[in-house]
């Protein structure tokens, strides 16, 4: 009834196109603080489904530029919203995908990003000081895309990640925090970009990641928690960087992701029967791409962007996903 054994690409493309048309929906407005991320999620999902042109390039770039906050030298998530590292990374990723980085003032954005590094090595999200390894990853990813990594104090940055490492091999949001698959991904991907995978206890971490798979095929983010489609990407991308995707059951995970599709209106939800959103749609599609699902475009698990684009910029790291299936 609500599940399918196939990825419903045309339906998901229409779903993503329709997201900007929901302006009489309260949820659309309540999530304005995530709009820039949502545009990046939607665009990347379209790229992976090989429908990059389904959203207008010019309109997308104009939206991104309308969120530029000149006093800060950074992007907000929506016009009139404050600048923050998360929408700034999404804006850069969108502009890279559309080959429009020339629209931004690279030295100023670089300065904004570097100004958020704390003495401990972690990054704050904005001037109000919330810290998180997510922000550290955002900074490293953005600086790398802008070709400004040489300005980063790598030793200080890596030292913070090292202190977040737990006995289970995983990483948390801050020093002392419990391991969580999303934080594992940001730390693993940041270390991959910085060529410092030696920090990771690879056998222990890959073991912990493999144990995220539940009997129904879905992945959870921590021991004894429920499965959720978004962990398909966070666990799989980390396993790809460690070259251990084969340590989980790809077929069962593929079926689980497909079963969370909304077969009427498109989009993918956290789990079967729930309301879809663009966040779970990109991470479901990206997970399927890493699993070698036929017909999809390769995603780079380190940058969460189209792999050929990252490769063309000379940024590809030594990750390994499953080979693309013919059908």
């Amino acid at each position: 009834m609500t599940s399918s054994s196939q990825l419903l690409i045309p339906l998901h493309v229409r779903y993503i196109q329709s997201l900007g048309e929901n302006k009489d929906d309260l949820t659309y407005h309540l999530t304005a603080h995530l709009r820039m991320n949502a545009v990046y999620w939607g665009l990347t999902a379209l790229c992976i489904m090989d429908h990059k042109d389904a959203l207008s390039k010019d309109e997308t770039i104009e939206y991104v530029m309308s969120c530029w906050v000149d006093e800060a030298g950074a992007f907000g998530p929506h016009p009139d919203h404050d600048p923050h590292l998360l929408p700034t990374l999404s804006a850069i990723q969108i502009l890279v995908i559309h080959d429009a980085l020339d629209r931004i003032d690279v030295p100023r954005v670089t300065k904004f990003i570097l100004s958020l590094q704390q003495p401990s090595g972690v990054f704050a999200g904005d001037q109000f000081g919330e810290i998180d390894t997510r922000f550290l990853y955002s900074a490293v990813n953005a600086l790398s895309l802008l070709d400004q990594l040489h300005q980063l104090d790598v030793e200080k940055t890596v030292s913070y990640i090292k202190q977040c490492k737990n006995f289970d091999g995983g990483f948390g949001a801050v020093i002392g925090a419990e391991s969580h698959a999303a934080q594992v991904w940001v730390c693993t991907a940041a270390l991959a970009i910085l060529d410092r995978l030696d920090v990771i206890d690879q056998d222990t971490l890959a073991w912990w990641l493999a144990e995220r798979q539940l009997p129904n095929g879905g992945l959870n983010g921590r021991p004894q928690k429920l499965e959720d489609v978004c962990y398909s990407f966070w666990v799989l991308s980390s396993l790809s960087v460690l070259r251990k995707v084969s340590w989980i059951d790809a077929d069962k995970l593929t079926s689980f992701i497909l079963s969370a599709q909304d077969t009427e209106n498109g989009g993918i939800a956290d789990r079967p029967g729930d309301l879809p959103d663009v966040f779970h749609t990109i991470f479901g599609v990206a997970g399927l791409s890493l699993l070698g699902y036929p017909g999809l475009v390769d995603i780079d698990p380190v940058y969460c962007m189209p792999a050929n684009l990252i490769e063309s910029k000379g940024l590809r790291k030594g990750w390994e996903a499953l080979p693309r299936k013919a059908s």
Binding site: T2, D228, D270, L275
Partner: peptide, 24 residues
């Protein structure tokens, strides 16, 4: 969005919900 069930509304329920959402 996490753990929000997909619901099938009847036409009348859908209209009522739309009106409530519209006011909000």
């Amino acid at each position: 969005m996490h753990g929000v069930k997909r619901v099938q509304y009847s036409q009348a329920a859908l209209e009522a919900k739309k009106q409530r959402d519209h006011d909000k």
